[in-house]
């Protein structure tokens, strides 16, 4: 256990909301610029959450807020374990737990819109989960350890051997970041055929917690992307940080240039990607002696 492994999760807990705000805010500004609009201030996500906190307190039932809170907590735990250099499999499982708890919160109301949104989110989980697992397995085959710490300080950049897995991860990142064409469950944009999908029945403080959860989630996901470039040197860390931001901008571009797809397409394409890029990459690793 190194000092770094204590400092970095603490930094995550404190800094992730700040970075998350900036990320979500710049996302909205970049999106606006891509549509030739001026866009909101960069701190807009923060204003939104503060506004939501000051709204009247009211929920559709007693448990919804609790589920959302648990979802937020497990998201933070996911990030803490990841940035502490913990076990990648555990990280993946708590990540899923957090996503599932959000679904449970949506299902706990009687609203048909929330139900459809939650069902679609469920399809998305089905779609991206194999690729997330292959990411963990690929990193294991590459480095011989599931520990993030060992992978990050392994001496070689995982990306050199795991290009296929990296491409697959970027593909499913579109789903995890809730971006078009795979923003089936709920979206920040004005697609309104489902009112607001998963978040339809969340309001005020509950919705604010969902937003904060997304900030934590996005920073964790970018950390996962950056891990592919870490080789224990300062250059690797710098490269990882720069490229995970680039990947995010790329996702924003995809978001703005695609319409929403059907869940069947999402499922098929994500599984195909997982099979070809994920399994293919791991097979190649094995074929050439790991």
């Amino acid at each position: 256990m190194e000092l770094f492994q204590i400092i970095s999760p603490v930094c995550y807990v404190v800094l992730a909301p700040l970075l998350g705000i900036l990320l979500a805010g710049s996302d909205r500004v970049i999106t606006a610029r891509m549509q030739r609009r001026k866009g909101p201030p960069v701190l807009q996500p923060y204003y939104d959450v503060r506004k939501l906190m000051s709204k009247e307190r009211s929920t559709v039932n007693g448990v919804q807020e609790f589920y959302v809170l648990c979802s937020l907590i497990f998201m933070v735990v996911t990030g803490i374990m990841f940035f502490a250099g913990g076990n990648l499999l555990l990280v993946v499982f708590t990540l899923t737990l957090s996503a599932v708890l959000l679904l449970v919160a949506a299902f706990s109301s009687n609203s048909p819109y929330a139900h459809i949104g939650a069902e679609r989110e469920l399809y998305l989980i089905m779609a991206y989960e194999p690729m997330v697992l292959f990411t963990a397995i690929g990193l294991y085959v590459f480095s011989g350890s599931f520990d993030v710490y060992d992978i990050a300080t392994g001496g070689t950049m995982p990306i050199l051997y795991l290009l296929g897995i990296f491409a697959g991860l970027v593909f499913i990142l579109t789903m995890k970041l809730r971006k078009s064409p795979f923003d089936l469950g709920s979206s920040h944009h004005a697609h309104q055929e489902l009112v607001k999908g998963t978040t339809t029945e969340f309001s005020g403080r509950t919705l604010a917690m969902v937003e904060v959860m997304h900030w934590y989630e996005n920073i964790f996901l970018l950390g996962l992307v950056a891990l592919f470039f870490f080789d224990g040197t300062l250059l690797g860390y710098a490269l990882g940080t720069a490229l995970c931001i680039l990947v995010y901008v790329f996702e924003v571009l995809i978001d703005n240039s695609f319409a929403r797809m059907k869940w069947q397409t999402a499922l098929k394409s994500a599984w195909l990607v997982a099979l070809v890029l994920g399994v293919g990459n791991i097979a190649v690793l094995f074929a050439f002696g790991g």
Partner: peptide, 23 residues
Amino acid sequence: CLTPMYDIERFGIIHTGNPKHAD
């Protein structure tokens, strides 16, 4: 008002379809 010409999002306004989110 939502178009690039007027762009109400610059005031932080979001056009939502959900009364529970609206002010």
